[in-house]
Simulated assay, not measured.
Amino acid sequence: MDILNIGEFESTPVRQLSLGQRMRADLCASLLHNPDILYLDEPTIGLDVVVKKNVRDFVKEVNRKRKTTVILTTHDMADIEKLCSRVLVIDKGSLIYDGNLEQVKDKFGFMERMELILEDELQDLNWFYENGIIEINRNEKDLVLKYDKTKINSSTILGYLMSKNTIKNFKVYETEIDEAIRIMYLKNDMKGNI
Rank of each mutant, 00 (worst) to 15 (best):
residue 29 A to W: 01
residue 30 S to H: 05
residue 30 S to L: 10
residue 31 L to F: 00
residue 31 L to C: 07
residue 32 L to V: 14
residue 32 L to S: 08
residue 32 L to M: 15
residue 33 H to M: 12
residue 33 H to S: 13
residue 35 P to D: 04
residue 35 P to S: 06
residue 38 L to M: 01
residue 39 Y to F: 15
residue 39 Y to H: 08
residue 40 L to T: 07
residue 40 L to E: 01
residue 41 D to M: 01
residue 41 D to F: 04
residue 41 D to T: 04
residue 45 I to G: 08
residue 46 G to L: 05
residue 46 G to N: 07
residue 47 L to D: 02
residue 49 V to H: 06
residue 51 V to L: 09
residue 52 K to Q: 15
residue 52 K to E: 12
residue 53 K to R: 14
residue 56 R to E: 11
residue 56 R to V: 01
residue 57 D to E: 12
residue 57 D to K: 02
residue 58 F to S: 06
residue 58 F to Q: 07
residue 59 V to K: 01
residue 59 V to F: 08
residue 61 E to F: 13
residue 62 V to P: 03
residue 63 N to A: 14
residue 65 K to I: 08
residue 66 R to K: 14
residue 66 R to E: 15
residue 67 K to H: 13
residue 68 T to W: 06
residue 68 T to I: 12
residue 68 T to R: 09
residue 69 T to H: 01
residue 71 I to Q: 08
residue 71 I to R: 08
residue 73 T to L: 10
residue 73 T to G: 07
residue 75 H to E: 05
residue 78 A to T: 12
residue 80 I to Y: 14
residue 80 I to E: 12
residue 80 I to H: 12
residue 84 C to P: 05
residue 84 C to Q: 03
residue 87 V to L: 13
residue 89 V to E: 02
residue 89 V to P: 01
residue 89 V to F: 04
residue 90 I to D: 03
residue 90 I to Q: 05
residue 91 D to H: 09
residue 94 S to I: 14
residue 99 G to N: 07
residue 100 N to H: 07
residue 100 N to D: 15
residue 100 N to I: 10
residue 102 E to L: 02
residue 103 Q to T: 07
residue 104 V to N: 01
residue 106 D to R: 06
residue 107 K to R: 10
residue 110 F to C: 03
residue 110 F to K: 10
residue 110 F to V: 09
residue 111 M to Y: 03
residue 112 E to G: 06
residue 112 E to C: 12
residue 112 E to D: 12
residue 114 M to G: 09
residue 116 L to T: 02
residue 117 I to Y: 00
residue 118 L to D: 00
residue 119 E to L: 09
residue 120 D to R: 09
residue 121 E to G: 06
residue 122 L to N: 00
residue 122 L to C: 03
residue 123 Q to H: 06
residue 124 D to I: 03
residue 126 N to W: 11
residue 127 W to D: 05
residue 127 W to S: 04
residue 130 E to G: 14
residue 130 E to Q: 15
residue 132 G to R: 13
residue 133 I to W: 11
residue 133 I to C: 08
residue 134 I to Y: 09
residue 137 N to S: 05
residue 138 R to I: 12
residue 138 R to S: 10
residue 141 K to W: 00
residue 142 D to N: 14
residue 142 D to W: 02
residue 144 V to K: 15
residue 144 V to D: 09
residue 146 K to P: 00
residue 147 Y to M: 12
residue 148 D to W: 11
residue 150 T to S: 11
residue 150 T to Q: 10
residue 150 T to K: 13
residue 150 T to P: 03
residue 151 K to V: 01
residue 151 K to A: 07
residue 151 K to R: 14
residue 157 I to G: 08
residue 157 I to A: 10
residue 158 L to P: 02
residue 159 G to M: 04
residue 160 Y to S: 08
residue 160 Y to K: 13
residue 161 L to G: 04
residue 161 L to N: 06
residue 162 M to K: 13
residue 163 S to R: 13
residue 163 S to E: 13
residue 163 S to F: 00
residue 164 K to T: 12
residue 164 K to Y: 09
residue 165 N to I: 02
residue 165 N to Y: 02
residue 169 N to G: 07
residue 169 N to F: 06
residue 170 F to V: 10
residue 172 V to T: 08
residue 173 Y to L: 13
residue 174 E to T: 13
residue 176 E to F: 01
residue 177 I to D: 11
